[in-house]
Simulated assay, not measured.
Amino acid sequence: MTVSYVDPIPPIRKMLVSMINEKVYGNTFPSGAALPAVLIRTVGGTDYTRLQLLVRANDDITAMQILIKAMNLIIQNAASVALRGAWAEKETNPISATDEDTGKPEAWCYIRFEHLEA
């Protein structure tokens, strides 16, 4: 039996939207997105999915706090994502940065997301 690839972003986004108050986007921030905002996108992986979780806010502390909350929620609730055999762990500690395009503070990390459809 062959297992087909499934994009993990929609079910992860759906789970996270139900757990936090901030806007959650998949793959790209829309132009003019209200801050703070969370972004989930895939950035590689072989036989698993490497996610980048990124938060933009009006200050660096808020960006980091929201990132840590979202990261922990994804890791703690990976099994409830609508994918088979899902689990997650952080690959990097959160990193504070500044978005080059907007000049806004952001924080990001990588999460290893395992699921059978990877």
Rank of each mutant, 00 (worst) to 15 (best):
M1L: 15
M1E: 11
M1T: 13
M1Y: 15
V6T: 13
D7T: 11
P8E: 04
I9Y: 14
I9D: 08
P10C: 08
P10D: 11
I12G: 03
R13A: 14
R13H: 15
K14F: 15
K14G: 07
M15A: 10
M15K: 04
M15H: 05
L16S: 01
L16Q: 04
M19P: 09
E22N: 11
V24W: 06
V24Y: 06
V24D: 07
V24H: 04
Y25P: 05
Y25S: 05
Y25A: 08
G26L: 12
G26Q: 09
N27D: 09
T28H: 09
T28Q: 09
F29E: 03
S31R: 10
G32Q: 01
A33Y: 07
A34T: 15
P36E: 06
P36W: 07
L39G: 01
L39A: 02
I40M: 02
R41T: 13
T42K: 09
T42A: 13
G44E: 08
G44Y: 09
G44M: 12
T46C: 13
T46G: 12
T46I: 14
D47V: 08
D47P: 01
Y48I: 08
T49Q: 07
R50E: 15
R50W: 08
L51E: 10
Q52E: 03
L53P: 02
D60W: 02
D60H: 03
I61Q: 01
I61R: 02
T62N: 06
A63K: 00
Q65W: 02
I66G: 00
A70N: 02
A70F: 04
M71E: 04
M71Y: 02
N72R: 08
N72I: 14
I75F: 04
N77T: 07
A78M: 05
A79Q: 15
A79N: 06
S80F: 06
S80H: 01
V81C: 05
V81R: 00
V81N: 01
V81Q: 02
V81K: 01
A82M: 12
L83P: 00
L83C: 06
R84M: 05
R84V: 11
R84H: 14
A86D: 04
A86H: 06
A86K: 01
W87M: 13
E89M: 10
E89V: 13
E89C: 13
K90A: 14
K90P: 03
E91I: 12
E91M: 11
T92Y: 10
N93T: 14
I95T: 13
S96D: 13
A97E: 06
T98W: 13
T98V: 14
T98N: 08
D99T: 10
D101V: 06
D101R: 05
G103C: 09
K104A: 05
K104F: 03
P105W: 00
P105L: 05
E106W: 06
E106T: 08
E106S: 03
E106I: 03
W108H: 05
W108P: 03
W108V: 05
C109I: 03
C109K: 06
C109Q: 07
Y110N: 11
Y110K: 07
Y110G: 01
Y110D: 10
I111T: 12
R112Q: 04
R112Y: 00
F113W: 04
E114M: 09
E114S: 15
E114D: 08
L116N: 09
E117C: 14
A118V: 15
A118Q: 06
